[in-house]
Amino acid sequence: MENAIQIPLLTLLFSAAISENVALYYFLGICPLISISADLKASFNMGLTVSLVMLITTAANWAIYHLLLQPMELEYLQLLFFVLIIAATVQLLELFLDRFFPSIYEVFGIFLPLITVNCAILGVSMFAVLREYSLIQSLVFAAGSGMGWCLVICIIASVRRRINIDAVPVHLGKTGITMLIAAVIALAFSGVSELMSGGF
């Protein structure tokens, strides 16, 4: 509005990726974090897909919000429009990959419908609008969030790979141990976040 927030893009990128990590700080996109992280390669692919979808949908949603909803004073419909945009983007991406990159499609394919209900994607779009980021800032924010999410899922997957051979308490199961890993990582990230937000 009067004075658009001036945040250095690099700060935005890193705070979105690390200190205000979308998965561990906002609790968004936890389900795939737990269910996909069994395999490092799949996790990385999932992370990349999420980042890509996040980037596309944030841009599209930014445009919808600023060019259609705000001038028409229909802000209360933002949820509807955002979600439909995400669903359509995911479907288009699925078709596109199927046609041009079948090898990628076979790896990603099953994850794509899951992404529609990945709250991280909707969350990032909503945050970008809420915080009045410009288009460039939104894109940087989306890229940072996507990277951050990808980072977390890869860390969890690598830790899980290491403890694969260890005897995990039977009753804890895969979900439980992943939760504990996530807890430890979240603690570590909150430390980093404290550091970055001027703990000195």
Binding site: E2, N3, E20, Y25, S197
Partner: peptide, 17 residues
């Protein structure tokens, strides 16, 4: 931290105005 910083940002922006 984020909420606290949000308060800071909002107040400072308003003060400028």
């Amino acid at each position: 931290t984020i909420t606290s910083r949000a308060v800071e940002t909002v107040i400072n922006r308003a003060l400028g105005q």
